[in-house]
Design a protein around this nucleic acid. Sequence first.
DNA 1: TAGGGAACTGACTTCAAAGTAAGTATGGGA
DNA 2: TCCCATACTTACTTTGAAGTCAGTTCCCTA
Lengths: 120, 120
Amino acid sequence: MEARKPFVSEEQCPIETVIHVVGGKWKPTILWHLMDSTMRFSALEKRIPDVTQKMLAQHLRELENQGIVTRTIHPSVPPKVEYSLSEYGRTLVPVLQSMCDWGRNHNRLGGDMSVRQMQS
Amino acid sequence: MEARKPFVSEEQCPIETVIHVVGGKWKPTILWHLMDSTMRFSALEKRIPDVTQKMLAQHLRELENQGIVTRTIHPSVPPKVEYSLSEYGRTLVPVLQSMCDWGRNHNRLGGDMSVRQMQS
DNA sequence: TAGGGAACTGACTTCAAAGTAAGTATGGGA
DNA sequence: TCCCATACTTACTTTGAAGTCAGTTCCCTA
């Protein structure tokens, strides 16, 4: 069940690796929230209103398997599970930051640049 | 307390913007080649062996519409079309570089990290 | 006139990622 | 006793990005 095909060995370019790691539909947002603080499953659910439990669990599991995110179980009455960036995951922070800066600027320039390119 | 209204089209987080721009299946590779030099359509085809003409054309068109790539037509006997990063596209280079560095390191650490995380 | 190379475009299919809905285990409180 | 909350899992359906393959235009050479 853990048998996954070797995605990395076939990549020609390491940029694809990053996209594979952060490129799920909800992963950027998950990482964005975990950059600031440790969060519970339910807290992430609230912060990311449109994500389903299934997708949240699945993406968190993938990030955990990739060593980006750490999962901590507190055995309490209602179960309490906390997610945080692992030390390795923190090495992604500058990358995410530079992506974020560019993205923010791109959005500021008009979001969909195709509007500006219509004239051609 | 989280601003969740779509401040940009549909993106909640600017990281998604970057992924939207570079995240097509072939876009990282296309950009990777264009970072070095201007290239013709056919040259890209040769450098990216598995891409189809349709997907190459489609992704190039998208990058052009987003203002990342410049398309130059030389009206010659067999048509000659050259693609290069636009000035705006060059602002992506540091971002791509940092993604690339991280990705390369991630691959070097064992490619599929899940092998190291199997203890769960 | 026939064929060729470059650079596409369009109709259709495919398949994995994402979504929907429901189910599970735990124990504490009403 | 039953219900509630948390943190999931499983089975099934839908969506959309990507792939296949064939067609098109342009002018040139043979």
